[in-house]
Each structure stands twice: as C-alpha cells, then as structure tokens.
Simulated assay, not measured.
Amino acid sequence: MNILIDLVPTTVNIDHKQYEINSDFRNAILFELLMQEDEIAELDKTMQALELFYPVCPKNINEAVEKMLWFYIGGKDDKNITSKKSGSVNNINRIYSFDFDDDYIYSAFLDQYGIDLQDIEYLHWWKFKAMFKSLKEDNEIVKIMGYRATDLSKIKDKEQREFYKKMKQIYELPKSRNEVEKISDIEEALLKSGNLSDIL
C-alpha cells in the first residue's frame, strides 16, 4: 500500500469477503497498550484485540489476526517485525509510549497540525502514523525520542555524553516488551491454540 496513491483501507478482505475494520487511530493505540499489558494472558489479548478492530469478527480467526496485524503496521512489509518461528527477532528500543507520552503527543499534533486529538471524531490510523513520524524537531516529544534513541557509546565528548545520559534517565520509559515481541506473542497464541475459531 502507498498512502500517496492508494486510499487508506477501512475494510480487509478475508475469505473473499470484505470485513469492516475499526480504522480510527484510537483503536490502534488501545491495541498497542493492550499488547504491553503483562497481566493479561496472550490468548485473552488476542481475543480483545480482535474485538477492538472488528465490529463483526470473521469466522476465519487466523486470517483475521493476520489482516489485523497487517493493518496495525500500516499495510507494509516490516522487516523489523518477524516471527519467533524464524528465530530472527530483532531488539527494538522503545523511544515513545502512548501511555506515558500522551500529553507530549497531544500537544505536538495541536501545535504542528492544528489537530486537537480530543475533539477530532475520526482520524485514520495510517494518517495518524504518517503525521506522528513527521513531527518536527522543535516538538518536545521529538526531542524526548531523540534522547531515548541516543547511543551513549558513540558520543566522544564527555560533557555531551553526561548530558544525554541525564536526559535518558529523566525520560526513561518503564521497561516493557518491544514491538517484535508484541506481534510475535499473538502469533504464538495462535500456534498454541491450533485454530482459534475452534474455541469461539
């Protein structure tokens, strides 16, 4: 999918039938927060995620999960999101949190785009993602993400290294699982259950 030439989807094709998918950015944010919950069993997370995205859940649960994940990552092949089955799970450092950075993100959208995320009735997840990726450097959230992403071992200057070390500590996020693990957990839950449609 190419956001410049293709219309952003509000349905997905499963078994030659179009199913509506809840495409508002809030659902995708809730999904991401759900995947970070350590106290919810993986199978329960999968079921809750399906309820978040599908007003009417498809009978083919395995494909429904696959299309849900496709939608969540923006309809592109993401080389960083790989299955545990392949044994190739990359470590992705989290540099933002929709939970802990909500006020910074809200303010950035209001400042740069004039979009009040509280008042807007609907904003497609893919459009939200595109705008989030393109926030300018003078937004506080972008500065904070820069601090979190900084590799201290590559900074030669001692004073500069101390500054970034301090900033990383100030803005450190609570430890949580990374994007790869969140996606892989759903895949693993599917594998363990065989076919989820049998238990619905």
Score class of each variant (00 low, 15 high):
Gly194Gln: 06
Pro58Lys: 00
Asp15Ile: 07
Met68Leu: 13
Ile5Phe: 12
Lys17His: 10
Glu51Pro: 00
Val89Pro: 07
Ile14Ala: 07
Phe31Trp: 14
Ser97Asp: 07
Leu34Met: 10
Val180Gly: 04
Met68Asn: 06
Val142Ser: 03
Lys127Gly: 02
Ile21Cys: 00
Asn13Trp: 00
Asp198Tyr: 14
Glu172Phe: 06
Asp198Asn: 15
Asn62Pro: 00
Glu140Arg: 08
Met1Ile: 06
Ala28Glu: 11
Phe128Trp: 12
Asp111Trp: 04
Leu117Asn: 13
Asn27Asp: 13
Leu43Gly: 09
Lys45Tyr: 01
Asn62Ala: 14
Val180Arg: 07
Tyr54Lys: 10
Asp111Asn: 12
Lys17Met: 04
Trp70Cys: 03
Met47Gln: 11
Leu191Ala: 13
Tyr19Val: 03
Thr11Ser: 12
Glu162Gln: 14
Ile170Lys: 14
Gly146Phe: 02
Asp116Gln: 08
Asn93Met: 11
Glu42Cys: 14
Asn139Gly: 05
Leu52Met: 11
Phe100Ala: 14
Gly75Arg: 11
Asn22His: 12
Gly75Ser: 07
Val180Pro: 01
Lys59Leu: 02
Glu63Ile: 13
Ser83Gly: 00
Ile29Ala: 09
Asp44Leu: 15
Phe132Tyr: 11
Leu190Asp: 05
Gln36Ser: 09
Met68Lys: 05
Asn195Cys: 03
Tyr147Asp: 07
Ser107Phe: 01
Cys57Ser: 07
Glu188Val: 06
Arg177Cys: 01
Ile5Glu: 13
Gly146Glu: 03
Ser88His: 06
Gln112Glu: 15
Asn2Thr: 05
Ile81Thr: 01
Asn178Tyr: 06
Lys59Glu: 09
Asp198Trp: 15
Asn27Val: 15
Leu135Cys: 09
Ile199Ser: 08
Asn27His: 13
Glu159Phe: 13
Ser88Val: 01
Asp198Gly: 10
Leu50Ala: 13
Lys45Arg: 12
Leu4Cys: 03
Gly87Ala: 13
Glu172Ser: 15
Phe163Glu: 06
Arg26Gln: 14
Glu162Cys: 07
Met145His: 04
Leu196Asn: 02
Phe71Ala: 03
Tyr54Val: 08
Asp99Ile: 11
Ile92Lys: 07
Ile5Cys: 05
Ile92Glu: 12
Phe25Thr: 15
Met145Ser: 03
Lys127Met: 08
His124Val: 10
Asp101Ser: 08
Leu123Val: 12
Ile81Phe: 03
Asp185Thr: 07
Lys45Leu: 05
Asp99His: 15
Ser88Phe: 09
Ser153Ala: 14
Arg148Pro: 04
Ser86Gly: 04
Ile183His: 06
Ile105Asp: 02
Phe31Gln: 01
Ala49Lys: 12
Ile61Glu: 06
Ile170Asn: 11
Tyr113Arg: 05
Ala41Arg: 15
Lys192Thr: 11
Ala108Met: 08
Trp70Gln: 03
Lys136Trp: 10
Asp185His: 01
Glu179Asp: 08
Ile95Glu: 04
Ile92Arg: 10
Ser97Pro: 06
Tyr122Lys: 04
Leu43His: 11
Glu37Thr: 09
Arg26Val: 04
Tyr54Ala: 06
Ala64Met: 12
Tyr171Gln: 06
Ser193Ile: 15
Asn13Met: 08
Ser83Gln: 04
Tyr104Pro: 01
Met68Ile: 01
Trp126Leu: 04
Pro174Cys: 02
Thr46Glu: 01
Asp111Gly: 03
Asp78Tyr: 02
Asn91Trp: 09
Ser97Tyr: 01
Lys84Ser: 02
Val180Ile: 00
